[in-house]
């Protein structure tokens, strides 16, 4: 079921020209993206490049008469799995970039030799592999999804069930791993109150003041003013402070009555 690209008739053992064109455009890009992926410093960039490779592969799947897998590749892999990656990257720190200096002696050389040797052997083996070309036209007569379903629920039903068990186990495992064990009792409200009002307590007795009371600015990045007119830095989110997005508080400090112009107005 060559939806888009496969042109009939084609030379036996060969794909159609449109597919060849597609391949020769996308394959180098995929290789380039993959190589870049392992050489860029930032993990986010790696993730984006990998997403690109995956989309390329999805296109290839569709071109290879596997539209179901192509769609799944985009939805599940590029969509869900890569988002999970990005999510975790966020948790771990988006900005953290690797140093690309190798610390283990001989690792690079050995890696290159090993991987290139592996690649050469594989490619050499492909040359000797099965050279026939059956095509999936016959297999996909009832539709690709229907064909796959038929196999999945007949010949591969056992593997299917096992894999479902594996998925559940993985979900449970992730929950167990993500769970943080409390080492002490959760403090009660009463205990927290006592803690707050104890002399020398670092916690504020009252709730923190809300940031920003000035309409002339986006209030969140402006610290609140205390009754004595001084600004309270603790009222601004730490994130903003870290980002350097807090406005200078000086501008909003209350001037004394004698100096104030607003009062007189």
């Amino acid at each position: 079921m060559n939806l888009i690209l496969a042109a009939n008739p084609f030379t036996p053992g060969q794909t159609g020209t449109p597919e060849a064109v597609l391949f020769w455009i996308l394959a180098p890009l995929a290789v380039l993206a993959a190589v870049s992926m392992i050489f860029v410093k930032k993990a986010v960039h790696s993730a984006l490049l990998l997403a690109w490779v995956m989309i390329t592969l999805a296109i290839f799947y569709i071109a290879e008469d596997a539209p179901f897998l192509g769609i799944v590749q985009i939805v599940v892999y590029t969509g869900a799995v890569m988002m999970l990656f990005l999510f975790i990257l966020m948790l771990v720190g988006v900005d953290s970039s690797d140093s690309l200096v190798e610390t283990i002696k001989g690792q690079r050389v050995m890696a290159m030799i090993g991987a290139l040797g592996f690649a050469v052997l594989l490619i050499g083996a492909i040359g000797r592999s099965y050279t026939g070309f059956a095509g999936l036209t016959a297999a996909n007569t009832d539709g690709n999804v229907e064909g796959l379903a038929q196999l999945l629920f007949t010949r591969y039903v056992w593997a299917f069930e096992v894999v479902s068990a594996l998925l559940i186990t993985a979900a449970l495992g992730a929950m167990v791993l993500g769970h943080r064990e409390r080492s002490s009792e959760r403090p009660t409200q009463r205990e927290l109150s006592i803690l707050r009002f104890r002399p020398g307590s670092k916690l504020p007795g009252a709730p923190l003041p809300n940031p920003g009371v000035y309409a002339l600015h986006n209030a969140v990045d402006v610290p609140a003013l205390l009754p004595d007119g001084t600004p309270d830095p603790s009222s601004v989110s730490r994130v903003l402070k870290a980002r350097g997005d807090v406005l200078d508080t000086k501008a909003f400090e209350m001037h004394t009555i004698e100096e104030g112009e607003d009062e007189s107005k």
């Binding site: 690792q107 050995m110 030799i113 090993g114 991987a115 040797g117 592996f118 052997l121 594989l122 083996a125």
Partner: peptide, 16 residues
């Protein structure tokens, strides 16, 4: 990473 490298080399050798 060392272990991974060894696995890689081993896989290459087995393939060979």
């Amino acid at each position: 990473r060392t272990y991974a490298l060894l696995i890689l080399v081993g896989a290459a050798l087995i393939l060979a």
